[in-house]
Simulated assay, not measured.
Amino acid sequence: MSAVSFSSVSKVFNTPKGPFQALDDVTLTIEEGEFFGLLGPNGAGKTTLISILAGLARASSGSVSVLGSDVQTQFAAARRQLGVVPQELVFDPFFNVRETLRLQSGYFGVKNNDAWIDELLENLGLADKAGANMRQLSGGMKRRVLVAQALVHKPPIIVLDEPTAGVDVELRQTLWQFVARLNKQGHTVLLTTHYLEEAEALCTRLAMLKRGRVVALARTSELLGAASANVLRFKTDDALPPQLAAQARVTGRVAQLPAQDAQEIEQHLSQLRAAGVRVEDVEIRKADLEDVFLNVMAQAAGEGAP
């Protein structure tokens, strides 16, 4: 049985400018025990898909099931299997951290849950904040509580929607260590993130969305294996020649050029020398998931994805 199944899911929103199609015939399956990544630019439909999974939105067509339970017709059974960490910081200002987690346990009918709550507080760096009112916490601490709330009923499926957006490095490391441990214990994890290095390190399989459509779906290793073998990276204050500029990824002074082999690297360097481009800090690295992602998005745009 699949952990999560999306079957021909489409979603159309009515807006003042007319219908807007947020999802277009999305079909994908997440197996039990997988660490699955859902990637895409802003507006690609990731959060809409998760909202439909969590029962916060209704699909215009298609169906979604969680461990065999349809999210619409068997909503109670489906939602008990999910622990969702939303993008937004949502909290009740009238309770402290421990009270918040006890209340969340009660939503799922879980009693005498203090031992697991203590473990969550310890693993998420919240033990010294257990008695603090939610209003007193920093944004990063509030995000930790959201993660704890999602896990408090020990759901078999954990959904993380941009869980590390705007948080410090310490929380990112703490969170991923804990979630990776839960995944090894058998929990299924669905992650959306703009930190592609996280997805590359954690996810065994990935789906990429662009404007509501799945444009790539494969194992992470397969996507990386299909990428250019190398990337030439350097810094410069000069403009690149047009032929190289068309394929370069430039961030401030840093330029990166894809290269299949050593011969192509030498060709790039020769063109830079011929154009009088002064370079420094030259290095050659393997292609990473960010390179793959940008290439997939460019190909999807070229093929006329809406």
Rank of each mutant, 00 (worst) to 15 (best):
S2W: 06
A3N: 03
V4C: 10
S5Q: 10
F6P: 01
V9F: 03
S10L: 00
F13T: 03
P16T: 09
K17R: 12
K17E: 13
P19K: 03
P19V: 03
F20M: 15
V26F: 01
E34Y: 06
G37S: 10
G37R: 07
L39I: 14
L39R: 03
G43D: 05
K46Y: 04
K46D: 10
T47M: 12
T48H: 02
G55S: 00
S60F: 10
S63F: 06
S65Y: 00
S65V: 02
D70P: 12
Q74N: 14
A78R: 06
R79M: 14
R79W: 10
R80Q: 12
V84S: 03
Q87V: 06
D92P: 11
D92R: 08
P93N: 07
F95P: 02
N96P: 11
N96K: 12
V97M: 02
R98T: 09
E99A: 11
T100Q: 08
L101N: 02
L101E: 07
L103A: 14
Q104C: 11
Q104N: 10
V110N: 00
K111R: 09
N112A: 14
D114Q: 12
L121Y: 03
E122L: 13
L124A: 08
L126T: 04
L126F: 13
L126H: 05
A130E: 15
A130T: 06
R135S: 09
S138V: 08
G139T: 02
G140H: 01
R143P: 11
V147W: 04
A148G: 02
L151V: 03
P155T: 01
P155Q: 08
I158Q: 03
V159A: 03
V159T: 05
L160Q: 04
D161I: 02
P163L: 03
T164S: 09
G166L: 04
G166M: 00
G166P: 05
D168G: 13
R172Q: 08
L175R: 14
L175H: 11
Q177T: 13
Q177W: 09
Q177R: 11
A180C: 03
Q185I: 04
Q185K: 04
H187V: 09
H187Q: 11
T188S: 00
V189E: 10
H194Q: 10
Y195S: 09
Y195N: 13
E197C: 13
E198D: 12
R205Y: 04
L206E: 05
M208H: 08
M208V: 15
V214D: 00
T220A: 07
T220N: 05
L223I: 07
A226S: 15
A226R: 03
A226H: 05
V231I: 15
R233I: 15
F234A: 01
K235P: 00
T236Q: 07
D237V: 07
D238F: 06
Q247E: 06
Q247N: 13
R249I: 07
G252A: 00
G252Q: 10
V254F: 00
Q256N: 14
D261V: 08
A262T: 13
Q263G: 11
Q263F: 12
I265L: 15
H268F: 01
H268V: 05
G276P: 08
G276E: 05
V277I: 01
V279T: 08
E280K: 13
I284S: 08
R285N: 11
A287K: 06
L289T: 09
V292H: 04
L294D: 01
A300H: 07
A301C: 06
A301I: 12
G302I: 08
